[in-house]
Amino acid sequence: MGLSAYLIVSTLLFAIGAFGFMARRNGILMLICIELMLNGVNLSLVAFNAYQPAPAVNGAIFALMIMAVAAAEATVGLALVIAIIRTRQTAEVDQYRDLKE
């Protein structure tokens, strides 16, 4: 399989994540969709690394670092969502309208 096939899969995964982030109402599901988008980017990085004309490791290192940052993001994001759900008693993000009213 060529580089383009992997890049198409990565694009599809990113777009699915972006769609879910915009369309779903559940806060935790929005975080899951962010993870999907990050994974799509990771796939493109590893694919670029594998198909470089000269043997390289930079893309794999970038992917590993993005994984670490994603883990930190998931930890803090879930803690935030849990704190908000605890005070608002709902996971639906369109119920969080205190600033609007």
Partner: peptide, 23 residues
């Protein structure tokens, strides 16, 4: 499949092992 087994192992450890369980 892309020849990056270390990234695959990290994916299983971090995403399947840690982030999924957290979520």
């Amino acid at each position: 499949l892309l020849g990056a087994p270390i990234v695959a192992a990290a994916q299983v450890l971090i995403y399947l092992g840690a982030i999924s369980v957290l979520i």
